[in-house]
Design a protein around this nucleic acid. Structure first.
Lengths: 277, 277
DNA sequence: GAGTGGTCTAGACCACAGC
DNA sequence: CTGTGGTCTAGACCACTCT
């Protein structure tokens, strides 16, 4: 329809951004719509308006339920907010969910790049070791079994920010090379080994003092506060594939959480961001 | 089958738990179904099976979309996981979302109680002060404007765990009494003042060393690591109502995050839990 | 093959916001 | 009033899992 209230072009994402759907795509229709809109959202300022459900269904010839599902998908990713009677609008980027790439787990490097920082990874050591008790328990293998032990530093904007050690069962991940990890990333390498792509992860973030070696590597004082992150990553069938302990410079980064009780539902997003103060 | 929890035949939530819906209720049908199932889920062990969509629609006479929406609602709260071809199952409680109570923001006390600990709140000071710059900026008021300053300690299992200071604009919250806050909770009090119920919040968790007064109050050493939490709580119309800075004993509690890339979607839950190690 | 959830259609009525 | 999202119906086809 023509004749909308005069508004800056900047504040509206028109239906024109939507290309016809690919009927042969394995990707569902609502997902194709959502992905197109997600790309458009990135350029826009918070508060910009998205096409309404009816505009989408008229443009693409889908049912309303499909248009609704596309917009709800974006809402769940934290990219937009929806208001009854008003419309769908670009959300505050601080409140976006960590990874928007489907099926891919966010890594520390990704978090940092999402925060607008450069990243570089350096492998300190990659070797086969025998699993300590805590590692064996987390990976569901026997104590003393062979595991890859991978120690890395993530350097961001020329400052060492994360010191992390990962353990992976040699039974699950037969081969791993230092050059490949340095060239791409650990998760990238795992994705290329059939069936060893991590699909979910549990992380625990707590405050701690930097252990001596970490303090040296991160170039902080002996009793410096750090975020201690314990991560277990799982395969599609819930078998653990990676157990990692990371230390993040405490004064530099924080976990941001947004809690939303609108609409009688608690929603919760998180991202690694610059710490306040 | 491998799965982290073995399953018995009797780990089934039958359709019998579902009572007929109240057609006069202002609560939507899918929400009534979800709430009934949520109550049933609490008693069950992870892995227990929920009624299928078809069992629900046959039992209650709703359409399949409504049954689907109920189960998807539970999935978004982190209470269940759904698997194509298999069914819907009770999720690991560690992966549940922080607050399951609709429309209510989780507080530190709630987090601790959810972790199975007792809590007690003690008000150290409640007074009207003039807003410092950072508080004024967060609350969207002028520097020096009148604000409530509320300093509290949360004691859990006879140990001081959280030291927090909240600031609230006197313009938004005209009255506040020490006894009322001690008897219930700050958020409970705010809920009873028309229009001052917090609906959403941003939190930032970072690692820090305990400031001197906090170290004394929490009974930790001078350079002890703590979680520094900065929270801004918002009303329904997005106006800020509370700005708070809290310090949580670092070695005791952690933020747990679960990232799920199943089904081409990143999902993210968080809860305050006991720290590992 | 039977049962499950994933997706989709083509309608419908409602509550809410803004004019 | 119109336009928005919230909810709902009564179907449908599909992909996946298990037997």
């Amino acid at each position: 329809m023509e004749g909308r209230t005069p508004m800056k072009d900047d504040d509206v994402i028109g239906v024109e951004v939507l290309q016809d759907l690919d009927p042969d795509s394995p990707v569902s229709r609502y997902r194709q719509i959502a992905d197109q809109l997600a790309a458009a959202v990135l350029d826009r300022r918070p508060g910009a308006r998205l096409p309404s459900e009816y505009e989408i269904l008229n443009r693409l010839g889908v049912s309303r339920a499909t248009a609704t599902q596309a917009l709800r998908d974006l809402e769940q990713r934290g990219l937009v907010t929806r208001r009854q009677g008003k419309g769908t609008f670009v959300a505050d980027p601080d409140r976006a969910i960590r990874s928007n790439r489907p099926g891919v787990l966010p890594s520390f490097s990704e978090d940092l790049r999402a925060a607008g920082r450069t990243t570089r990874e350096r492998v300190i050591a990659l070797e086969i070791a025998s699993a300590p008790a805590d590692v064996a328990a987390a990976l569901g293998i026997g104590k003393g079994d062979d595991v890859w032990s991978l120690e890395r530093i993530i350097v961001s904007d020329d400052q060492p920010v994360v010191h992390l050690t990962s353990w992976l069962s040699c039974a699950t991940v037969p081969a791993l090379s230092r050059s490949a990890v340095e060239a791409t990333s650990l998760y990238e390498q795992l994705s290329q080994i059939e069936g060893s792509r991590p699909c979910s992860a549990d992380e625990q973030w707590s405050a701690a003092v930097a252990p001596p070696t970490t303090a040296t590597v991160l170039d902080v004082g002996r009793n410096a506060p750090v975020m201690r992150v314990v991560r277990t990553a799982y395969l599609h069938d819930e078998r653990p594939v990676e157990y990692a302990i990371a230390y993040v410079r405490g004064e530099t980064f924080a976990v941001s959480i947004h809690i939303d009780a609108h609409q009688h539902r608690s929603r919760l997003l998180a991202s690694l961001t610059k710490a306040a103060g």
